[in-house]
Design a protein around this nucleic acid. Structure first.
Length: 778
DNA sequence: AAAATGGCTCTTTTT
DNA sequence: GAGCCATTTT
């Protein structure tokens, strides 16, 4: 590829001038390999964006010859925006910026032939992959109790992430013999369905790029003059090999922090960044050690946590900022007490003038979120949750997507199986088995086996008729798909398949929520089309489908005036003014599962704690409890060992009123720590309340007398603000209501009218439709 | 074929 | 505690 187009002169100041010394050095190394060890809060995104801007303006590198890889779509979007503000939209648009998966998907659409795929391949997400494994197990007559699909799948992924296909698999023991067969079947199934999983996206591109005899490989190796990788500590072996192959120019800049490597369980390998210098002896090394984000106390607490880590690249994180407030460590009685205390501090922060969007609550596992959520809702504190049940994993959403995917790629068997009898159209298990047999015998996808099966006879006339009717339906929708915009197609699918009618006829409360979710899905297709139109393109169905499977929860995190709640994993890369880390107890954080053969990885837990602490700019609160009900039983809590690693001088210890009034707690606490040397020694005191030492309210007494509402099914994705009691006489969505028989519930929806009917989720009773006059607002 | 029951499991999940 | 799956029940 030659650069015939003259590149415009720099229209913006030389970026390096705006950077301080070590960052400027990082930018200055325009040629050859470069590794940047970027401590938490040291401004690494700034370094990458300025480096790119510098390459474009100072070194005249054409934008389409620069590849920057990030780990989330959100990070990619932010980077592109920042470069656009330096170099202009037109130039930023030409850059290759994206996640590993999105970038590879794009390359693979171009070079699909070399990978043996058709251009319209589909990407199977986690649940699709599990469905494939389940089907393969069934075909091999293997017991899915002995071989749980989840475990089998994670084993397969482990192989793939290290670049080994079934041919390179080395079975150890009889369990592995079975795994190998499943692995082979799995690969065959995907191939036949013209489908790839997440690993394949990267692996397929890698295989092309590493093939010296392939023309596509030549193109890939010559395509990029500069390659940059963010969050490099979290790449796996395959991703690393790909980066090396694509950076044939050796202009490879990797930026990361080995202290923040928290995805080992997904194949990430910290040793890659630590050993980078071994692989590239001529690499320039830059360390960014000044933290610009956090107060002195937060930085010192973070250092205390990470210092004992083994094998870390030495880094001296420092800050020029004032010590600020001490890190507050709080002992609570139980999770309710903890949540109530957090809610009070949130209110206090708000009163100090901190916007709620600048407050975050972290936890180690999602299971901890429920109680926090209940209290925030009761206190009318607006919040949003990242993670948990995803919108795109809802049954009805997946159904519609399956229809769309089958219209895009009729070979996709997982999708065909999902929707062939939804809504019910008399194509039952027996018919499907016959269809599978024929498909296997002819070695074709299920859809292509329909005609051979119906021609062959031996099928009941009713079954034959249903199958042909289904095929006609799909064929006529495919015609539509060829011309109509995806949103029209989606609406048409809902009508013509009878899906909408099925929901209309079902007058249970859930069906309304489902209809709404489907409307939301159509809305998201419209958004996609509008976005494409704005960029002067036509939004194609396959593009939408790809985006849906490659998008994540964190991408949807809104910049809204609400408290954010998320796992510590989800918090990586974010920062907040005020941060609460809850559940800082041994066996919760560091986490220890019940399964002894899955050994805990204390090093990674330590890094996770470091990530959590370094998210805070001004204020950090860390809570632990004496007792916690989790996974159905009560654990007695011992403060996390990581708390003991905070330097005493940067910490203030507190107890909630409820905790200090309970003798067993104090005794238990002391007993638990007799021989722990370096506990924070600050005097335990009651939290300061405005206007004196009023005892903190005990939440537990309230919670036992009045059960708080549980979530409605659709609400976990991104929580809407608890609605003010307004509109239909206090019956706005989210409002808390009381019912004679069912107790307290949360309103999901209201059908207005003379005699309004509310859809309410009751804790313990599920979702009910109730005439509003039988409800009273609290 | 839908509904009810019982048993099982339960980290983290950038894509 | 609660969600998911498989099995049983009607």
């Amino acid at each position: 590829m030659t650069d015939l187009v003259a590149f415009p002169p720099p229209a913006f100041p030389e970026p390096a001038d705006e950077l301080n010394e070590p960052q400027a050095r990082a930018v200055a190394h325009a040629e050859g390999p470069l590794v940047v060890f970027a401590g938490a809060g040291s401004g690494k995104t700034r370094v990458i964006t300025y480096r790119i801007a510098n390459l474009l303006a100072g070194h005249r590198v054409p934008p389409y010859r620069v590849l920057a890889v990030t780990f989330t779509n959100k990070a990619a979007g932010e980077m592109r925006r920042r470069i656009a503000s330096l170099a202009g939209d037109e130039i930023a648009k030409e850059l290759w910026i994206g996640t590993f998966h999105a970038t590879c998907a794009r390359l693979l659409r171009r070079f699909h032939d070399a990978a043996g795929l058709e251009r319209n391949f589909v990407i199977y997400d986690d649940s699709d992959q599990r469905a494939v494994v389940a089907r393969v197990l069934k075909e091999l007559s293997l017991d899915d109790k002995r071989y749980p699909p989840r475990q089998v799948l994670s084993r397969i992924h482990k192989e793939k992430q290290e670049g080994r296909g079934p041919d390179a698999f080395e079975p150890q023991g009889f369990f592995d013999d079975a795994i190998l067969k499943v692995y082979e079947g799995y690969e065959r199934y995907l191939r036949k369905a013209n489908a790839v999983d997440f690993d394949d996206l990267i692996l397929s591109v890698l295989r092309i790029a590493e093939d010296p005899k392939s023309l596509a490989g030549d193109d890939l190796r010559a395509r990029f003059r500069h390659v940059l990788v963010d969050e490099f500590q979290d790449v796996n072996q395959v991703q690393y090999r790909l980066v090396r192959a694509l950076a044939a120019s050796r202009n490879l800049c990797v930026v990361g922090d080995d202290d923040q490597s928290i995805y080992r369980w997904r194949g990430a390998d910290v040793r890659i960044v630590r050993n980078f210098r071994r692989d590239f002896p001529d690499a320039a090394i830059v360390k960014l050690e000044q933290n610009y984000r956090s107060t002195g106390n937060v930085v010192r607490a973070a250092l205390g946590v990470i210092k004992p880590a083994k094998d870390r690249e030495p880094k001296e994180l420092w800050t020029a900022r004032d010590p600020g407030e001490p890190v507050v460590v709080v002992a609570a009685q139980n999770e309710h007490d903890e949540a109530a205390w957090v809610a009070e501090r949130v209110r206090e922060a708000q009163a100090r003038g901190v916007p709620l969007g600048e407050v975050a609550i972290f936890y180690r596992v999602h299971a901890q979120s429920r109680v926090l959520e209940e209290v925030l809702r009761a206190e009318r504190i607006p919040y949003q949750i990242v993670g948990g049940m995803r919108f795109f994993e809802r049954a009805e959403v997946k159904d519609l997507l399956s229809y769309l995917r089958i219209l895009d790629n009729p070979k996709s068997d997982v999708d065909l199986e999902r929707i062939i009898n939804v809504p019910a159209r008399k194509i039952g298990g027996a018919t499907l088995d016959r269809l599978t047999q024929v498909a296997n015998a002819l070695d074709v996808p299920l859809y292509e086996a329909i005609l051979p099966l119906t021609d062959r006879g031996g099928l009941g006339t009713a079954a034959k008729k249903s199958l042909l009717a289904f095929r006609d339906l799909i064929e006529s929708l495919r015609e539509k798909a060829a011309s109509a915009p995806p949103s029209d197609l989606a609406r048409e699918v809902l009508e013509r398949t009878g899906y909408a009618r099925m929901l209309d006829e079902d007058d249970s409360a859930e069906s309304d929520a489902r209809k709404q979710n489907l409307q939301e899905l159509v809305g998201s297709i419209l958004d996609y089309e509008a976005e494409a139109a704005a960029a002067g393109q036509v939004g194609a169905l396959s593009g939408y489908l790809e985006r849906v499977t490659l998008s994540s929860d964190i991408d949807a995190l809104e910049d809204a005036p609400r408290v954010s709640m998320m796992t510590v994993h989800a918090a990586k890369g974010l920062e907040f003014d005020t941060v609460f880390i809850t559940g800082m107890e041994d066996e919760i954080f560091p986490f220890k599962g019940p399964d002894p053969k899955r050994n805990e990885d204390i090093e990674e837990e330590r890094r996770l704690a470091y990530v959590a602490v370094t998210r805070a700019r001004e204020r950090l609160f860390v809570t632990h409890t004496a007792r916690r009900m989790i996974f159905g039983n009560t654990r007695f809590g011992v403060p996390s060992r990581f708390i003991a690693d905070f330097p005493t001088s940067s910490v203030k210890g507190l107890m909630t009123a409820a905790a200090s009034s309970e003798r067993s707690f104090r005794d238990g606490y002391r007993d638990g720590h007799r021989d722990e040397p370096a506990r924070p020694r600050g005097p335990w005191s009651h939290p300061m309340e405005r206007g004196g030492d009023a005892p903190a309210r005990s939440f537990s007494s309230r919670s036992t007398s009045t059960p708080t509402p549980a979530r409605a099914p659709g609400e976990r994705y991104i929580e809407r603000e608890p609605a003010e009691a307004s509109g239909e006489g206090g019956l706005a969505r989210g409002a808390r209501v009381m019912h004679e028989k069912f107790g307290v519930g949360a309103i999901i929806d209201v059908d207005p009218g003379d005699d309004p009917i509310a859809t309410v989720k009751f804790s313990g009773w599920g979702v009910k439709r109730i005439k509003a006059r039988f409800l009273r607002t609290e």
